[in-house]
């Protein structure tokens, strides 16, 4: 039997490998098309099944063994380090501050992008001003209450209008898997810069590289201008 019949299997095998190669070569274009055409339709899906498809979806990353959990009631944002007075802001304190609304794309350094994500929060600059930044502080360091994740920005970056301490996501709260109740959202930079489960903001003299930066990611994570990538800026 082995030497009779037509080699359909070999053709299908090579065809599939060709399909995979085409996918690798042109997948980026196809992905972009799918995300702009099919993505908005999938976004309306309420069953949650569409969220399984690899189109316009967030992929949830955490670096610790369990996903941290903290309720809005027990939540405290600590501001520490080179400040005039260390402060603790509750969830309600943050909600009482003037809100900033941003609708921007979310771009991951691993390639996926979610278009037009609606974020609500307070400008990091406002939070820093409440604590009062000392003259010798030049950087901001973020710590997650997952106990492991850290990130940082220069003070100039931190004062941008599109850098917010976020509590609102797509019209609702920031859910636990997306880093709630409160996380950073740094619009012009890759996702890894936006610390989830934000616990402490510390003013430091110099930039301290964060978790993924120890694994080789760029400290200045501008979308399209870092990590060897050329994405459209968010």
């Amino acid at each position: 039997m082995g030497d009779t019949g037509s080699p359909v299997g070999r053709r299908v095998f090579l065809g599939l490998i060709g399909l995979g190669a085409v996918g690798i070569a042109f997948g980026a274009k196809t992905q972009k098309t799918l995300e702009t055409t099919v993505g908005p339709i999938l976004a309306k899906d309420r069953t949650g099944l569409a969220a399984l498809l690899p189109i316009g979806r967030f992929r949830i990353y955490s670096v610790t063994s369990s996903m941290p959990s903290r309720s809005k009631q027990e939540y405290k944002l600590r501001v520490r380090g080179l400040v005039d007075h260390a402060i603790d802001l509750s969830y309600d304190d943050l909600r009482a501050m003037p809100p900033t609304h941003l609708t921007r794309d979310f771009q991951c350094v691993t390639g996926w992008r979610v278009f037009n994500v609606k974020w609500t929060g307070v400008r990091l600059a406002d939070v820093l001003d409440r604590a009062g930044v000392k003259a010798n502080a030049h950087a901001v360091r973020f710590t997650s209450f997952d106990g492991t994740y850290t990130e940082s920005l220069t003070l100039d970056q931190a004062r941008r209008n599109d850098v917010i301490v976020a509590y609102g996501f797509e019209g609702g709260d920031v859910s636990r898997i997306h880093g709630g109740p409160v996380r950073m959202y740094i619009a012009p930079m890759y996702g890894y810069k936006s610390t989830k489960w934000l616990d402490t903001i510390e003013l430091t003299r110099d930039v301290v590289p964060g978790y993924w930066e120890d694994y080789g990611y760029d400290v200045d994570g501008w979308v399209g201008r870092s990590n060897g990538r050329s994405d459209t800026p968010t």
Binding site: A21, G27, A28, S230, D231
Partner: peptide
């Protein structure tokens, strides 16, 4: 092939990485 590109991403362009993820 696609997994290797995703893991050893430094050697590949942005579009190839995204394409590899797609495949």
């Amino acid at each position: 092939a696609s997994g290797s590109i995703m893991y050893w991403f430094k050697f590949f362009t942005n579009d190839i990485r995204t394409g590899a993820t797609f495949a």
